[in-house]
C-alpha cells in the first residue's frame, strides 16, 4: 500500500497549474483533498506520473455568494467549510445535509466539494446534490474557460466531462426559490459509508398541489439518476406518492455489489422516495 513513483508540483497560480497539465505526454492528476486519490495511489490503482496540488492557489479557495445569488464553491474549498457555513445552511440546506452525510469529520476536513464531484463515485452524496440543485461547473483549460451543467457533467462511474488538461475551478449552485421543500436521505448500513441507495428531493408548492419537483437517486447506477417520469407523475397527480413510486420502479435499474443486492436497492429507492417526499412536502411553504 505504497504509491508508485510520481512527481509532485504545487503551483501558486491557476495559470501555472494549467501549464503543468497541458502539453505533456505524462499521465497527470490534480490533487485537492486527496480523500479518494491518495488511497487509489496507495493501492496502485492510480499511477499518475505527475500530481498537481491545487490547494495553494488562492483564487480556488473562495467560498462566496455572487451578485446573482448563486453559491460559488472554489476547487480547494473543504467540505467542512461549506457544511459549517451559516449562509449555505440557510440558502442551500440540501447541500449542507448532503455534506454532513459524507464519511466522517476527518474526511470532510480534508475532502473538497469539487474534488468529490470531479471524482464522481456514483454512490457519493455530492454528485446527486449537484444534479438536484442544477449546479454548473466552471472548467478551465488551455483554451479558456467553459461552463458545464450538472446534467451533462457526470458521464459514468469515475468519469466526468473534464479533460486531463483541465481543472474544475468552481462549482456554482443557483439560488433556491423561497419555499422550496427538500429532503436528502440515504440508506446506509454503517455510518459514514457510501450510500447503499439515496435520494435528493426538491419540491415547490402551488396551493395544495406540487408545482415543481426534482427527484434524483444515487447509488443506483453509474451516475446520479434523475427520474423525470416520477417528477411528472408527482406534479400531474397533485401528490400521489404511489404513482411516483411506480414511475420510479419502471425507471431504475440498480445493480448489486458486495454491499447490497439489486433487489434491496430497488426496494430501498422506493422506501426512501416515500419518506423523502413526505419530508420535502412538509418543508414547502
Amino acid at each position: 500500500m505504497k504509491p508508485g513513483p510520481f512527481d509532485y508540483a504545487v503551483p501558486d497560480t491557476l495559470h501555472e497549474a494549467l501549464q503543468l497539465l497541458s502539453g505533456t505526454e505524462r499521465d497527470t492528476k490534480v490533487l485537492a483533498g486527496g480523500q479518494s486519490l491518495i488511497p487509489m495511489l496507495n493501492m496502485r490503482l492510480a499511477r499518475p506520473e505527475l500530481l498537481v496540488d491545487i490547494t495553494r492557489i488562492p483564487e480556488l479557495g473562495r467560498l462566496a455568494v455572487g451578485d446573482d445569488g448563486a453559491l460559488r464553491i472554489g476547487a480547494s474549498v473543504r467540505q467542512t467549510a461549506v457544511a459549517d457555513d451559516p449562509v449555505v445552511r440557510e440558502g442551500w440546506p440540501l447541500l449542507t445535509t448532503a455534506i454532513t452525510q459524507i464519511g466522517h469529520p476527518q474526511i470532510r476536513n480534508r475532502g473538497t466539494v469539487c474534488g468529490s464531484l470531479v471524482h464522481h463515485d456514483p454512490a457519493a452524496e455530492l454528485p446527486a446534490a449537484a444534479l438536484a440543485l442544477d449546479a454548473r461547473f466552471t472548467v478551465a483549460g488551455p483554451g479558456g474557460t467553459r461552463t458545464v451543467e450538472a446534467a451533462d457533467f457526470f458521464l459514468s462511474t469515475f468519469a466526468t466531462d473534464v479533460e486531463p488538461d483541465e481543472i474544475v475551478t468552481e462549482v456554482v449552485v443557483p439560488p433556491q426559490p423561497a419555499g422550496t421543500g427538500w429532503a436528502f436521505q440515504e440508506l446506509i448500513h454503517r455510518r459514514g459509508d457510501f450510500a447503499g441507495v439515496g435520494v435528493a428531493v426538491l419540491l415547490r408548492r402551488t396551493g395544495e398541489r406540487v408545482g415543481a419537483a426534482r427527484i434524483v437517486f444515487f447509488g443506483v447506477g453509474s451516475t446520479p439518476v434523475r427520474v423525470p417520469a416520477a417528477e411528472q407523475a408527482l406534479i400531474g397527480s397533485g401528490f400521489d406518492a404511489e404513482a411516483t413510486v411506480a414511475a420510479t420502479r419502471a425507471a431504475l435499474d440498480p445493480q448489486g455489489d458486495v454491499h447490497a443486492g439489486a433487489e434491496w436497492r430497488r426496494e430501498g429507492a422506493e422506501v426512501l422516495l416515500r419518506r423523502a417526499l413526505a419530508e420535502a412536502w412538509e418543508r414547502t411553504a
Binding site: 440508506l187 448500513h189 447503499g196 454491499h259 447490497a260 443486492g261 433487489e263 434491496w264 426496494e267 430501498g268
Partner: peptide, 11 residues
C-alpha cells in the same frame, strides 16, 4: 444480519 440479508429473509 445486514439490511440486504434481513430484507431477503422477509422477501
Amino acid at each position: 444480519l445486514t439490511p440486504d440479508r434481513v430484507r431477503a429473509l422477509l422477501r
